[in-house]
Amino acid sequence: MQITVTRSGGFAGLEKTRALDTDGRTDAAHLERLAERAVLPVPDGHHYRVTVDQQVLDLQEPHLTEEQRELIRTVLDEGR
């Protein structure tokens, strides 16, 4: 299984992408289980696409910060 992770943001705003092939690894089964669980949708969970000017962020419950929850709730409740 090929797993790729991209991290961006932070203080310097740098992007880092790394890929890992689980073939032949002693921890392959564990990593594959983690990957499969990470990409599973949350049953009955909401998905959000938040656009701020030209910046787009895809979010999914339950992986929201309190700030993201507050922003989403406010826009959905008060926006047009």
Rank of each mutant, 00 (worst) to 15 (best):
I3V: 05
I3S: 01
T4Y: 01
T4N: 08
V5K: 00
V5T: 06
V5W: 04
T6Y: 01
T6M: 07
R7A: 15
R7D: 13
S8K: 15
S8G: 15
G9W: 00
G9D: 05
G10V: 02
F11D: 12
A12M: 15
G13D: 02
L14Y: 11
L14W: 11
E15R: 15
K16W: 12
K16M: 13
K16R: 15
T17D: 02
T17Q: 04
R18V: 13
R18W: 10
R18L: 14
A19I: 02
A19F: 04
L20N: 03
L20V: 01
D21F: 09
D21K: 11
D21P: 08
D21Q: 09
D21V: 10
D21W: 07
T22C: 08
T22A: 01
D23A: 15
D23W: 11
D23N: 14
G24P: 05
G24W: 02
R25T: 03
R25Y: 06
R25P: 05
A28Q: 00
A28D: 01
A28Y: 03
A28T: 02
A29G: 08
H30F: 15
L31T: 03
L31N: 03
E32F: 03
E32G: 04
L34N: 03
E36A: 14
R37T: 12
A38Y: 06
A38T: 08
V39Y: 01
V39G: 06
V39W: 04
V39A: 01
L40Q: 13
L40P: 03
L40K: 13
L40A: 13
L40C: 07
P41R: 08
P41E: 06
P41Y: 04
V42D: 12
V42W: 13
V42S: 14
V42P: 10
P43N: 10
P43C: 08
P43R: 09
D44T: 07
D44E: 14
D44V: 07
D44W: 05
G45K: 01
G45E: 00
H46K: 15
H46Y: 12
H47E: 13
H47T: 12
H47I: 10
Y48S: 05
Y48E: 07
Y48H: 04
R49T: 15
V50D: 05
V50M: 00
V50H: 00
T51Y: 07
T51I: 10
V52E: 09
V52Y: 05
V52C: 08
V52M: 09
D53K: 07
D53E: 12
Q54T: 11
Q54V: 09
Q55S: 11
V56I: 12
V56H: 10
L57V: 14
L57Q: 14
D58F: 11
L59A: 01
Q60A: 15
Q60V: 12
E61C: 04
E61F: 04
P62E: 02
H63I: 06
L64R: 04
L64I: 03
T65V: 00
T65F: 05
Q68H: 06
Q68N: 06
Q68M: 09
Q68L: 06
R69N: 07
R69E: 10
R69C: 07
E70N: 11
E70W: 11
E70Q: 12
E70A: 13
E70I: 10
L71Q: 06
L71N: 06
I72D: 00
I72T: 01
R73M: 11
R73Y: 10
R73P: 09
R73Q: 13
T74N: 12
T74V: 13
V75E: 02
D77N: 12
D77H: 10
D77C: 09
E78A: 09
E78C: 07
E78P: 02
G79H: 00
